[in-house]
Every structure is written in C-alpha cells, then in structure tokens.
Design a protein around this nucleic acid. Structure first.
Lengths: 328, 328
DNA sequence: TTGAAAGCGGTACCAT
DNA sequence: ATGGTACCGCTTTCAA
C-alpha cells in the first residue's frame, strides 16, 4: 500500500494524499475525510524511508553516550528518550566508550545517518582535537550536551553547577570542624574537572592550603576504591571526611571505612539508586537529570523549529542527605 | 556529493559506482580502485535514506525495552548495542514502560520505521492479547526476546534458566536447615513467574507444603520493601531466609533486617551493581546477560542472513556468593 | 565488465 | 482546493 494506491482508492491525486498526510490546511474537509477513511481502511502507513529521502530527515535524534550500563547515564538516556517521544522523535543510541577515536567515529556515523540533531550524554569530549570534530558536526546539525560544556557555535549545553555543589559540601564540612577532606575522583571530563575545582574553591575560601595528597584519583570500581582507601587509612595522610565525584566511588570508600570500623561523613555524587542501596544510606549530590534532560530536549525542539536558544543553561544542584552526612 | 557526482568524476556510470559501494564482485579492480579514490577524495558518504528506500532497510534494529533506567535492562541494552555495532547495525531505542497499550504502540512504531528486527528486553508481553500483536509483528520481521518466552513463529527466545536457579537456592537453604523462606517478588512477567515457580519447585521437592503467607508481592522500591519486610518481621509469619526476584528488592529486605538487628541469608537476583553496593555484599543470581545478549544478536545475525536458528536457547545461571549467603 | 533506465514512495513546486 | 510532475539518491534488472 503506497500513496498511489491510496490516491487511486480515494479518487484524488497523490499530491492531495500527501497533503492530507502532512496536515496541509489547503485540503477541503470533505476530501480530507475521504482520504483519511481510505487510509484507515487499508491501514496505510507512509514509508519512512521515502519520507526521509524527500525531507532529508527521519525525525531521529542521535544519542551519543559513553556507557548506558552506567547507572547515571542510563537514567539520562531514559529521561531523554522519554522526552524525545513527546515530540515524536526517535532515539538512535550510540555507546562510544571512553576512546576518543571511537567517539568521533560514532559521531560521524550518526551524521551519516542524517539524524536531526545529536545529544551528548556523558561524553568525554574535552580536548581540542576532539572539539574540532564537534565543531564540524555542529555545522551540520545542532549538538546538545548534557552536563558538559563546549563553547562552540551550534553547540548547546545544559548543565548542573557541580562546581558550586562541591564547594558547598566542603564549606559545610569545614563548618563541622573538618578540615582534612579526602577528595576521590575517577576521570577528568568537564564535569570531573568542575567538581575538583569546586573542592579547591571550598578550601581556598576558608584560606586553607591545597592538599594534593588528599586529592586522589581512583578507578571506577567498588573493590578497587575500597582497597585504595583502605591503604590510605593505613599509611596515608589523615582525613576525617570523604567527598567523591561519583556514588560508586563513595560506596567503595564507605566499604573501606566499614572494614576499618570507622565512621566519618561521606558524600557521593549523582544521587543514583546506588546511594540508596548503600548501608548506611549515602548522602549524595543530585545533579538534577530530571530537569537537565527535559530541558535539553526542550531546547532542541526550539532549535529545530528555528527559535533562538541560549548556548548555555546552568541549573543548581541539590544535596540529598542520608545517613552518611554528619560526623561521629 | 551524490552517486552521480562520483560517477561523473570517475568517468563511469552510477551503476558502477553503486557496485563499488556494495562490493559487487563484477567490477574490475582498476575501475574499483579509481572510483574508490574519487570517493575518498570527495569524502563521499552514501545517503542513508536513499539506500534505505532502495533496500527497504536502513540496517537498524529496534530495541523494545520497558525501562532503560533500570540497572538490569540498562546493562542488557548496553550489551546488545555493543554487539549490534559489530554487525554494523544501529539501535533504535524505544522505552515502553509497563503499559501494554504503549508496548504495542511502540512495537507498531518500530515496524513503521522498517527496522530489520526487533529485540525485546524485559518486555512484559505475556497476555494472549499482546501476543497477538507480537505474532503479527513477527510476520514482518524477526523478533528476539531476551530472557522471556513466547512460543510463536518468527519469535526467538534466549533465556536463562531462572526457575532452576531459584530451585537450587531453595535447595541449598533447606540444606542449611532453613525451611521457612520468604519469597519476595514484584511483577509476574514470564521471568517473574519462572522464579516463583522455582521457589515452589524447591519446596515441593523437599516435600514441604506451599506457604502462601511467605510469598509476598512488593513494589520495586527500596523503602517500600524495607517497610513491608519490617512489618512482616513484626507481626507476620516467621522466616529465616529471604529470596528476592530482584537485587533491589533484596536490598530493601536487607535494610529491614539491619534495622531490626537481624541476620539471615538473603539472595537477590540479577547480580547487578546494586548487589555490590549493598553492605553486607548481596549474594545474587547472575542471569548471564553477558552471554544472553551477544547470543541473541548472534541469532539475529544468522536469521537475517537466512540461516535457521533454534527458537529457544536456554542457558544456566550462576550464583555469585557474597556476604549475605550463610546463616548465623 | 559496464551502462541505461526503471523503480522505490514520498515531497513540493507550479499550474489550473 | 486540487492535479501534474520533477525531483530526492540509491538499487537492480536488462542489454550490450
């Protein structure tokens, strides 16, 4: 069943059928009615490829995500996809992993599929070399970055003020009289850098010196973090609170503390389900995916309909206090 | 840059360019070489829509998933997507939620996009009414179900023997002298049913009567499960071990036990990252997504190239013991 | 081995 | 308001 058949059955031309299909106002109600009835009867579905060829769009958005199996990114993908459906966009999912070469390859791949736009979720795009590719891509279609920042024409960023979130955490710990705060992080994506700088900000504001021995990079793995923190507890510099760039990392640290029979404030990041799973419940910074994601898609919607939108949208975080917050 | 331009630049016809594009053997090495060089020079990319229109395929697979924000499904989607890329298929992601109406709507949507196949991940398709839609869909494209079972022509299932997994868990608990085992579950998808039946199997084998008061349905939410289990501990039937259909549920139960100062064997399901996050570490059944997902895509690969494949592939699970396993 | 040309199923412009 | 028709860019059959 194609548009020609429908045209024949309805006794009109394919042009008219196409108009009905596209809700063109210039079709008489009677004609529209008739054509629609035939479509219904024949349970006609327009061919998406033919449509794509003509319009140069299949109403698809490319989702470039480092890793959907990660709880945080999975949530972001879920929220984005749900919001995209509202505008009847389809989501083409592309998981890149952390290799920059793959990331650019997949970006290329999405463009070759003529997606209407690309949304970056947790991408590590950060170095200039990669940004060159992003810049190129952004010339072809709008690029929206969730919780990342690349200031380039055609690239729009929606992000959470994580730097300030960490700064405030430091501040509140200092307020409890804790000055030696261990900061654990894994990768230095844009987001990763912001958090670390927030940690430094917090200390600097209180006139405290930087403590490089308390800023420790760890792999994103519970047992490895646990062991690393255990080692620190044994031989390392002393500390009496822990901030982590990720819930998972915080949980690894929590395990080390438990094994050592110690208690101290531990604050994670992302407010993921993992934070709820931990015992004691992990206090965590919520970076507001529930807001970021719909906002990002909303932006895209406007962009694609030609409306102007800000290149950068920043929202603030929210601390979710659970059992690991206070000292003693 | 289209195929005509490339043809012109190479001094051949578009047919020849097309042949080169599709690795047709009937092109002389010299011609092929020449055309390829031009393509390279012009950094030509064939138009995916035009290709789709001609071939009636854009080399896309529809992923029908109830909820990617769920840790378990996210992992499945991740593994499937990764494996699909190997065969250079793209993944069109569709999150349906649990409403059967939506599920059939999205299935329809994927079909209208002419995906080459559909992979169901954690779908609740179970009732006959829905199966009618599946049957219809399976007439158009192959349907592969991961960890679910629907026996219909054109539907292929790859699943884990979860029934047996639970049976064995019951068995081993009975062996430890525990006869009163609380079974917690949330939804009765195919998988959900199998697990529950496994629980019954285990008890039946030991000649124990069914204990409906120990088979409790709970919502998939840590605090709600915690409260439900706390209530059972207070006023309910006695039990001295807990089996759950999901890690998340097991963790809720664990929290209730901790609050009550109690310890008993608790076994979760899925061996998700959540199990590692819990303290004490949650013993959990691994239902082998790492095997199921690649197997499912491998099946699809064969199907799409016309090779025959079994309609049902079952693999066995693996118990991952952590701290919550043994009594005392 | 190569080329010409007829689809594939729509969109959109130009007439009427 | 409606119809005719030239695209869109590729695949594939048929002839040469």
């Amino acid at each position: 069943m194609n548009i020609y058949d429908i045209a024949a059955c309805s006794g009109v031309s394919i042009a008219t059928v196409s108009r009905v299909l596209n809700n063109s106002p210039s079709v008489s109600p009677k004609t529209r009615e008739k054509v629609l009835r035939v479509m219904q009867q024949e349970s006609y579905t327009p061919n998406a490829f033919a449509r794509g060829l003509g319009l140069n769009s299949m109403h698809m958005i490319g989702l470039l995500c480092t890793d959907v199996s990660d709880t945080y990114y999975a949530k972001a993908v879920s929220l984005v996809e749900k919001r995209l459906r509202k505008d009847s966009y389809d989501a083409l999912l592309c998981c890149t992993g952390n290799d920059p070469t793959d990331q650019k390859k997949f970006l290329q791949l999405l463009l070759s599929k003529h997606v209407d736009a690309v949304i970056l979720i947790g991408s590590a795009f950060k170095e200039d070399a990669q940004n060159a590719y992003l810049a190129q891509a952004a010339k072809e279609v709008p690029v929206v970055i969730i919780n990342g920042l690349v200031e380039l024409p055609g690239v729009y960023c929606v992000l959470c003020d994580e730097r300030n979130a960490v700064r405030q955490n430091v501040h509140s710990l200092l307020h409890q009289g804790i000055t030696r705060i261990l900061y654990l992080y894994d990768v230095l994506t844009y987001s990763g850098c912001q958090k670390r700088v927030g940690y430094q900000d917090g200390l600097a504001e209180a006139g405290l010196p930087e403590m490089p021995e308390l800023t420790v990079q760890v792999p994103k793995s519970i047992p490895e973090v646990r062991d690393a923190v255990a080692a620190l507890l044994k031989d390392g510099p002393s500390f009496s609170a822990i901030l982590a760039s990720e819930d998972l990392i915080a949980i690894g640290a929590l395990k080390a503390l438990q094994n050592a029979g110690l208690q101290m404030p531990v604050i994670g990041f992302n407010n993921s389900i993992l934070a709820q799973c931990a015992s004691p419940g992990l206090t965590s910074v919520d970076n507001m995916l529930e807001i970021l994601c719909p906002t990002a898609v909303g932006l895209l919607e406007k962009l694609l309909s030609g409306e102007p939108v800000p290149q950068k949208t920043v929202i603030s975080s929210r601390l979710v206090e659970r059992e690991t917050f206070h000292a003693n």
